[in-house]
Amino acid sequence: MGVDVAELVRVRTRHPEAVAEAAARRTRRPLLNHDGRLLIIAADHPARGALGVGGRPLAMAHRADLLDRLCLALSRPGVDGVLATADILEDLLLLGALDGKVVMGSMNRGGLQGARFELDDRFTGHRAEDIERLGFDAGKLLLRIDHDDPGSLTTLESTARVIDAMAARRLPVFVEPFLSRRDPDGRLRNDLSAEAVTTSIAIASGLGGTSAYTWLKVPVTENPDDMAEVMAASTLPAVLLGGDLGDDPGEQAAAYEKWRCALRLPTVRGLVVGRSLLYPADGDVAAAVDTAAGLLCEPPS
C-alpha cells in the first residue's frame, strides 16, 4: 500500500488536533465479538528500544515499513485489533486503519531493553485517562518481577494502582507478568518454567482492589504440555503472547502448534502477537496472520 510519510508529517505539523478528531469519529466495537476470541497485533516494542527481529537488530526501526505491515495485518479477516504506543496508534488513526478494531494502549515502556534500569518499567506510555479520553478499548502493562531486586515491590504497587484506575473506568487491562532474573552477564531473562509462569499468574491475578477488568497476557511455557496445569492457577481470562521467533521457519511452525494446543484451554481466549506475524521468516505477513487467525476458529474446551 505504501504509507505517505510526507502527508502524515504535514498533518502532524499543521493540524495536530486531527489525532483527537480521528479518535472521536473512529467506529468502535466490543472487545469480544460473538465467538469470544481475540487476535491482537502487537507493535509496542520500539518504545522500549526493542527493535530487533531474529538476526535483524533494527527490523522495527523503519516506521513507514512497520505501518505498512500493520495496515496489512489489520486488513486480514479475523484480526480484531492492535496494541501499540501513542505514536503508532496515532499514525494508524490518521491512516484510517482503526475503524471497527480493538485499540489497546501500551502503558509502561520505561524499562528499556538492555538498560541497567530495565526492571524499573515505569508507566511512561498511556495513562488510564488517556485511554478513556481517546475512546480506546483497553490497556496493556508489563510486570516483570525479580526476587533479588527490591525495586520490584514498587513495580507491583504501581501496577496495582493502574489496575484500579482502569477498573474505575470499566476498561480492561491486560497484565503481562514474568518472573525475571539477571544472568551472570547482567542480561535480563524471563523464566518460562512451569513453576515460574504459574507463580507470576498467581501474583498478577491478585493485584488491585478488583480483578473484574483484569486480563492476563502469558507466554507458552518451555514445555507446552505444562500449560493446562499452569493456566489452572487463575480464572482470569488470558491471551497468549508471541515473542521473537527468529528467522527459522521451523520455529514459526512449532509456535503455531504450541498456540493451537494452549488455545484449547478454557481460560485462554486469544493471541496478542507482534514480531512473529509482522516479520515472519518467509516475509509473507498476510499468510502468517491468516494462519494465526485460523487457530482461533477452534473453540476452547
Rank of each mutant, 00 (worst) to 15 (best):
D146F: 13
F117V: 08
R56D: 02
P77F: 04
L72H: 03
D65V: 01
L89V: 12
I163P: 12
G105E: 06
R56W: 01
L83D: 06
T154F: 14
D65E: 08
A160E: 02
E118L: 00
V53K: 00
M166Q: 01
V53G: 01
K140C: 14
A115L: 01
H147G: 06
D130W: 02
A59P: 01
V162M: 01
A61K: 04
F174W: 04
G81H: 07
L119H: 06
A165W: 10
A61Y: 04
H62E: 15
V102K: 11
M104P: 08
I131R: 01
V79H: 00
A165E: 14
L134P: 14
G105M: 07
I131E: 02
D149V: 06
D137Q: 09
A73Q: 05
H45R: 11
L67A: 07
L141D: 10
A165Q: 15
E129G: 08
L70V: 02
A59W: 00
R69Q: 08
G78C: 13
G135F: 14
D146A: 05
V102L: 11
H147M: 11
R127A: 03
L153S: 11
T154Q: 09
L141R: 10
A167P: 07
E90R: 05
G111V: 10
S106M: 08
R56T: 04
D68C: 05
G100T: 14
R56K: 06
G151L: 12
V53S: 03
A167T: 11
T154D: 14
L134H: 14
V82D: 00
A47N: 14
L70T: 04
G125R: 11
A84H: 06
P172N: 02
D149H: 15
P150D: 06
H126A: 08
R63E: 15
S106I: 01
H45D: 12
I145P: 09
E118Q: 12
F136L: 15
H62M: 04
V103Y: 06
F117C: 03
V53Y: 01
V175L: 06
P77N: 08
E157V: 12
